[in-house]
Amino acid sequence: MRRLLFLLPLAVVLALVGALAWPILEGRDPRALPSVLLDKPVPAFDLPGLAADTGGLHSDELSGRPVLVNVFASWCAPCRQEIPLLVQLSAEGVPIYGIAYKDEPAATRKFLAQLGDPYRGVGVDRDGRIAIEFGVYGVPETYVIDGAGRIRHRHVGAVTEDVARRTLLPLLEELSK
């Protein structure tokens, strides 16, 4: 019994090493934050469009079929990176909606004119308030929304080929069934 007591420090150390090794082994990113809005309805919003004559984006537009919502900005470098892929996905028929986060509409228009416009509709979130409703903490972020208008997945950072083919598209497919 008394001898067991002297094994206690060793047990604590083993537990500690395990607890420290685990996050490294699973490649956890300490800054990643899971969305608390998963399986919850998309926050209600009604955002103005990029120009006076173009329509904005209303949260109702997002339900009905599974869609992607991409929060982006012209001043964000990774957004610039992911646009070509989004354009390609859009051409393949994936419905993508955009929320322009804290950006000048003129700058956004120029950005899309230059790189291509993958969006079925873009809402302008000048003060970033709607992004906060989504729990956005960095741009770009991409959300998968199901037909019932519920958030099913969030991807933080640029969408890469890998992310699109392995995560986003299969999920959209599954939700379409």
Binding site: R3, F6, L7, P9, L10, V13, L14, V17
Partner: peptide
């Protein structure tokens, strides 16, 4: 380092 020393300790 810690594991070995604590085994020795036990």
């Amino acid at each position: 380092a810690i594991g070995a020393s604590f085994i020795l300790y036990a």
